[in-house]
Design a binder for these strands. Sequence first.
DNA 1: CATGAATGAGCATTCATTCAT
DNA 2: TATGAATGAATGCTCATTCAT
Lengths: 203, 203, 203, 203
Amino acid sequence: MDPLSSRRPRRTALTNAVLTIVAERGLDQVSVREVAATAGVSIGTVQHYFPTKDDMLLAAFNDVVQRIRQRISSLCAGPHVRNNLSAVLHQLLPLDDERAAESRIVLAFAARAATSPALAGVQQTILTEITGALTDAFALAAAHATTDRCRLAAHIALAATDGLALHAASTHGWISASQLSTTLDFLLDMLLPTTEPGYAITP
Amino acid sequence: MDPLSSRRPRRTALTNAVLTIVAERGLDQVSVREVAATAGVSIGTVQHYFPTKDDMLLAAFNDVVQRIRQRISSLCAGPHVRNNLSAVLHQLLPLDDERAAESRIVLAFAARAATSPALAGVQQTILTEITGALTDAFALAAAHATTDRCRLAAHIALAATDGLALHAASTHGWISASQLSTTLDFLLDMLLPTTEPGYAITP
Amino acid sequence: MDPLSSRRPRRTALTNAVLTIVAERGLDQVSVREVAATAGVSIGTVQHYFPTKDDMLLAAFNDVVQRIRQRISSLCAGPHVRNNLSAVLHQLLPLDDERAAESRIVLAFAARAATSPALAGVQQTILTEITGALTDAFALAAAHATTDRCRLAAHIALAATDGLALHAASTHGWISASQLSTTLDFLLDMLLPTTEPGYAITP
Amino acid sequence: MDPLSSRRPRRTALTNAVLTIVAERGLDQVSVREVAATAGVSIGTVQHYFPTKDDMLLAAFNDVVQRIRQRISSLCAGPHVRNNLSAVLHQLLPLDDERAAESRIVLAFAARAATSPALAGVQQTILTEITGALTDAFALAAAHATTDRCRLAAHIALAATDGLALHAASTHGWISASQLSTTLDFLLDMLLPTTEPGYAITP
DNA sequence: CATGAATGAGCATTCATTCAT
DNA sequence: TATGAATGAATGCTCATTCAT
């Protein structure tokens, strides 16, 4: 009846099929055929929603980015800045199977973004958003720190988090979930002085 | 005369061709045809050296890893531990065109390692080596720090470095070379107390 | 309009192309490319109808078997059992160019059936059908013979016929059409006593 | 030392490798690579003995034909003509695993002979030899039969035997070894009257 | 909105063969 | 005598895409 209620779900089913294949077999195993088969529709239908394969991959990347965006923004509503900060970054680590799959997906798209301007644009947007939010959070948590310091802290925090996710996703069991968590906590302790000032991002 | 003097160069020419294509157009644009054309040999010759495409990619990844390994070990010979540490990590950042290409290459292989056990093995080996070396370096630089602290510092330093390289490679100009360098320096200052103790990785 | 009227002919054109190549150049010269070229369609079209080469060969064998089946059954309608029997078996001999081509085709598929279960199944089916029909015919022609005798006669008749076709197809002119016919007639005379017994190879 | 004692065995090992592959996987699975691997030599060695693949196949066919020739001629030395005749023809049926393999081999080469003049020549030679020998045998067994009758009987006997072998090799278990033997015996009884006339399919 | 026929370029791989050693 | 490097054509097959319905 409502065109939105029938069009969107099918489109989402297709991007979900893409993401499933990316997580399980890698981005280069994504083909229109496989997506159609995974989603249980015909090839023609896939190409009705996404005229080209690049359109399809871009939509899938946008979907996963949007999913991350929403999960992050919902975590920023807490009263304690530091807890929010920690929660957000932990969301980006492959601490359980679901987020491990997401890490593989994000890594795959990030790698392809290196040679795909369209994907690079999406990647740049989400990186800008997250570092902006992290910078704000650091500013709130350490009120007397300069903006530059906060931005530096944000970049370090996000780089280390993504780097940890990269290390975990690109090996198999080299670094455990608890190690990931411990390492990130250690870094946050360094970046966010708790009891007394005198180090970390404060001047 | 010496078979090694005629066999090796050709094999290396082939893996170099692979790495060139990976850096310029991405790992999924690597085909036996393209590699043969880039190296200026016939298709049959490529498959004489590498019976399957996976063999070829694995050899190329091993080559780039070996290249990194040697560059790093040559930097560790300096007298000042902290300088060595800094130099090694800066080597892993895409600070010039050559290292930007290498970052794209390493990122591409890391992403594929997520779904390729053979590549994951190589990745795990090099990560283990580098974190081991970094841990030793932190131990030398901060003599009274526990081994666990040093290992944590090593993981953070490498994760942040690889994360920065990932951010730079997966966008185009989002983060400049000087920003990369500044951010890494800031992190190292945090991890390596200079004048006086009382923070960072010392207890 | 009717999908059958546009789909079937094309599919049949493809199997006919296969059979043409088999008859002229042998089964191992059949390639998807050659079939496409012979049928005047694109490679993709061939593989739209037959996803794999084995599917294509199986369909072609089924087609030729079906053709034989129909020719045989149309011959069994005559009033004189012995004439029918003779006519059917003569149909299986390479007595003219068309049936010589068919003999080469059938021989090629029979040989491949030795190492292809799918083709062996088709071969077994047609052999069972023909020997069944021949057994019935012998039973009608020699009313007081036991079923076992009739089955033996049927097996001998078909084996000798196929053997003659094999000899003719696998040499070039070693045995002439008239020799084939004469030999088969002689065998039928032996298997089907007409007026009086007492012949065989004795004068 | 003796060139013959070192050259011939290796050459024979190669043709044996060909025949093994033909029996197990079919003639079109024979490749220089596979033959070299099966015989445990290098590709270059195979092509040292057989410059082209056709040379190799022709030699292999000649070998198998020679093997049959020798087995047959050794059986013709017996004192009872009828027994010799029966023994020779039974040798051509796939009554045990070894002769089943040989039947697949002979069938494969016969089918290829349909489009290969060189193989057809060998096939024609062996057919001529065997029918000649059979004609002689029938002449001895039925002294007062004309030569033409004997030749007809020979053709029928060989055609039926080869046809039975074809039926057995091209299906899997459709006709059992004992059925093959029984059918051939029945035919021979028909072609070679022993005590009294009055047989054929009538009881 | 959805299908599937049709296309032809592209893929990794196998192949027979040549040649220098 | 025997090897293996090198070649390039050919293989079956998958692919993204176009188009008519």
